[in-house]
Nucleic acid binder design. Structure first.
Length: 451
RNA sequence: GGCGACGUGGCCGAGUGGCUAAGGCAACGGCCUGCAAAGCCGUGAACCCGGGUUCAAUUCCCGGCGUCGCCUCCA
């Protein structure tokens, strides 16, 4: 069974399932106010790999991932560009899912929007106020973190230490708050801002409430796993948890956080490729599978640098896998080698050890190639195992791509010319095919062509 | 100030108290080829520094040095 590092208990422990055979996962999705960046790509890929692996294991996955479609960043951009805020959220969401599609990230089973849950959020905030755990000020409603046991659990810090170390930072809304760490649940609207009615006045929800309401609504209390990027640990996840605790509800049973994307100097964030400022550029300029490959070869909890060298390396590694897929595409069906699959499961079950799993994949490919060279019957089961692994982690290998009839004819003509020792013609055909983007492989059995 | 992560071959990146320290990329050698390319097979090379624990440490502990992250709105 799958074991994952749990941020709350700071140890790798078994992912307990509330219902056998089913897993409920909540993943914090994007605020839609700009193009997705490399960090978004990493988070979605990490959890896509998790999801696919769970599904491959025969577990039914319910994955809810929200779209934050009301937020200060959205309003600010709308004002700056003088356009309706919905215009921004709709377009950005479309771009988001287009990018996810290119990455091969499967759409979550549930995609709730913050604006669809405003009534529920108002109701929840009302409950918190009634319980005496939230209070009203002249600019909004705040949660009182001092009423929450274990506040700071996810960041492994207590309230006093957090405050002491606050550094030089400005504390938002400090004047109105009872405690500097209290956070806003409901923001009263300023003139011209989008707003919804509430008992405290028209306004909009704070960032941290939507995920509580949506996850509990869609997945129910005590759902299995809550995921997101390391940077969401605090304050976002801490504050989600604080609300659920304040309500007296069981929240996520397990917390998973992925590491950052860093640049070549090891610093957080994205502009490391120089020519690639965001995810869209990366997808535009390179094989979209390359990013998944880069991530698979490092552990999800560590930082990963997305550099020219890494991407190039991944592209080359994929070329080898594609060649293997093409070479084995005509092999008879066989049951996957069970020893290899067991090793794969063992790696993945150990906190999603994808580096080990990909090492196994490459190793299996090499063994299958060697078996093929030796006409050994173990080739087919090994090849089948390699395919299973690739599929389970979402690597789509280009196997037997359809080759148009005229290209097949040209390949045949190339062989005929070679047989007739008419090398000038053979070379001409070869360069013509290569010019059209085909990889031309000349071997004993004649010429084969693939993309 | 508090909490935490990390320093492994040319590059990326796993992992382990002792058994040949994964894998990928690059490099090099071989096979194949009319020549290439692609492909396949193979080879070499690494555990930041100083103490400590131990029969034994790259792995555990302590201390340095270096890098990075979080500590209110960022995946």
């Amino acid at each position: 069974m799958l074991h994952l590092y749990d941020t709350a208990t700071r140890q790798v422990r078994e992912l307990a399932l509330r219902e056998p055979g089913k897993v409920s996962i909540y993943l914090c999705g994007p605020t839609v106010y700009g193009p997705p960046h490399l960090g978004h790509g990493r988070a979605t890929l990490v959890y896509d790999v998790l999801r696919r692996y769970l599904e491959w294991s025969g577990i039914e996955v319910r994955l809810a991932s929200n779209i934050t479609d009301i937020d200060d960043s959205i309003i600010n951009r709308a004002n700056r560009e003088n356009r309706p805020w919905q215009d921004i959220t709709h377009k950005c969401e479309a771009v988001w899912f287009e990018a996810m599609g290119k990455l091969g990230v499967a759409r979550p089973t549930d995609v709730p929007h913050a604006t669809e849950y405003v009534d529920e959020m108002v109701a929840m905030i009302g409950e918190l106020v009634e319980l005496g755990r939230a209070y009203n000020t002249d600019d909004g409603v705040y949660l009182s973190v001092e009423t929450v046991d274990d506040y700071g659990l996810l960041v492994n810090q207590n309230l006093a230490d957090m405050i002491e170390g606050g550094g030089d930072r400005e504390v938002f809304g400090a004047g109105n708050k009872r405690h500097p760490a209290d956070f806003v649940l409901w923001k009263l609207a300023k003139p011209g801002e989008p707003s919804w009615p509430s008992p405290w006045g028209d306004g909009r929800p704070g960032w941290h409430s939507e995920c509580v309401v949506m996850s509990l609504d869609l997945l129910g209390e005590g759902f299995d796993l809550h995921c997101g990027g390391m940077d969401l640990k605090f304050p976002h996840h801490e504050n989600e948890r604080a609300q659920a605790v304040a309500l007296g509800k069981r929240f996520a049973n397990h917390w998973m956080h992925n590491g950052f994307v860093v640049d070549a100097d090891g610093e957080k964030m994205s502009k490391s490729l120089g020519n690639v400022a965001n995810l869209l550029d990366l997808l535009d300029q390179y094989d979209p599978r390359a990013y998944r490959m880069v991530l698979l070869q490092s552990h999800y909890r560590g930082p990963v640098s997305v550099t020219q060298d890494n991407i190039d390396g991944a592209v080359n590694a994929l070329a080898g896998l594609d060649a293997f897929a093409a070479r084995t595409s005509t092999l008879p069906d066989a049951a996957a080698d069970p020893v290899v699959l067991d090793a794969f499961r063992a790696a993945m079950d150990d906190d999603l050890d994808t580096p080990k799993a990909t090492a196994l994949l490459f190793d299996t490919v090499r063994r299958a190639n060697a078996a093929l060279d030796a006409d050994d019957p173990s080739a087919a089961p090994l090849a089948a195992a390699a395919r299973e692994i690739a599929a389970a982690v979402g690597l789509d290998l280009k196997g037997a791509a359809d080759v148009p009839a005229d290209v097949v004819e040209q390949a045949a003509a190339l062989d005929a010319a070679r047989a007739a020792k008419d090398f000038a013609t053979a070379d001409a055909i070869r360069s013509e095919l290569q010019g059209a983007g085909w990889t031309v492989e000349t071997g004993k059995g004649g010429t084969t062509v693939r993309r």
